[in-house]
Design a protein around this nucleic acid. Structure first.
Lengths: 218, 218
DNA sequence: ATATGTGAATTGATTCACAGCG
DNA sequence: CGCTGTGAATCAATTCACATAT
């Protein structure tokens, strides 16, 4: 099962599912590519093309059933499975992720917490004990983590990624602002809101609401 | 000054600048498209093409000067300016952003905090007092926020976006997992790590390390 | 009659090959 | 001679138009 669909399509499918969930929440039963397009800010063409990568969903002339498109989207995105996750780095960020509510709504389960700081080892968050970093390979054999979240300082991120990858993890969420080198078949998703701010600053460059004094950025 | 370069190019420029900063940190003076490519995980072609959108940077035959490419990247990305930011929603997420250290390294300054909850109004974070939501238009006139960060629950996000936009803000960082509708010229950057997890689950779909029991996702 | 599903056309981004400059 | 800068070629994604199914 190779990734035939473009990455942009997958990102949009995630949006479509969000919209469908809103439709489900208000009890809507039928919808159309037009209605989905409206709520997702894309064209109806785009939606039909995106869905077409994965088969046929609706009935011509009448549209889509909210329930079936919802189920199919969940299946396509792999959200009908459960994923066990290891967080590496239990500093402020790691701790914040721990009790983030929205994750449990899907099958994302945090099942391991690691830190190289002996002061952190043994602490408990959300009922899970922090293990020392060097126990990761051993614990991996028992718990088979599907995903790893890298919440360590930039300087340590590549080493953590290597450890996770050699333990068999093939999906990494990387909060550190560095490019990770991983072998073919391993997927890295960067999460970096400062990078997003920089995309915004590019958008605003040269036209601030108020002209500010120039300043040397570091 | 329209956005001539593709969005993907801008994202890569941010990566290049990160690499250049590492080069600066170790005192490296010269580099090449090849070296940058290596450290950024892209092709040397891509780097030269990306830079070419913005002019000429290096000297043929010898490569790039780390200092000049660093300066040019900062200029292109608008990072030599200062941006005043309003955070809306001072719940856990808003508070966490408040004392995030990496932001001050660039010219991103948090200058306003807003919340509609009277219990939050008047509290102080990082030396800034939380103002009531309805004072945003007034304060906007005094402080001219360049960017808005939306850290409110999904249900309130669109309304907050509308308020910010009509106050004149043209760059929004949206932490709520909803699609925001904004007029032409306003840029929205979504930040949603659960969406990133879903991209990972798509990557893993049907091939978990360990086969898990099926489960109905919501 | 209506809205999906899809081949064809178009647009855009990436890759390449090499011309141009130091 | 080496490495940048760039037009041309390839590849990919989006848009369109319409045939198709209900």
């Amino acid at each position: 099962m190779q990734d035939q669909a473009p990455a942009a399509t997958v990102s949009r499918l995630i949006t479509y599912l969000r919209v469908i969930r809103q439709f489900e929440a208000v009890g809507l039963e039928r919808t159309s590519s037009e209605a989905l397009a409206e709520a997702s800010n894309v064209s109806a063409f785009q939606i039909r093309k995106d869905l077409a990568y994965f088969g046929t969903f609706g009935t011509r002339g009448s549209g889509y059933l909210v329930s079936t498109i919802g189920l199919r989207l969940r299946e396509i995105l792999g959200l009908t499975d459960v994923y066990d996750i290891a967080i590496v780095g239990m500093g402020r960020l790691g701790q914040a992720i721990t009790d983030y509510p929205a994750m449990g709504e899907y099958g994302f389960r945090i099942r391991g917490m690691f830190d190289s700081d002996p002061g952190k080892v043994g602490l408990e968050f959300a009922g899970i004990e922090v293990s020392p970093m060097d126990s990761l390979p051993t614990l991996m054999r028992q718990r088979n983590f599907d995903m790893g979240m890298i919440a360590v300082p930039s300087a340590a991120a590549q080493e953590v990624a290597d450890t996770l990858v050699s333990a068999g993890v093939r999906a990494l969420l990387n909060f550190a602002p560095v490019v990770l080198n991983v072998p073919e078949g391993v997927m890295v998703e960067p999460v970096d809101f400062v990078a997003s701010l920089k995309r915004l600053s590019y958008h605003l460059r040269g036209k601030p609401v108020l002209r500010h004094a120039a300043r040397q950025a570091t």
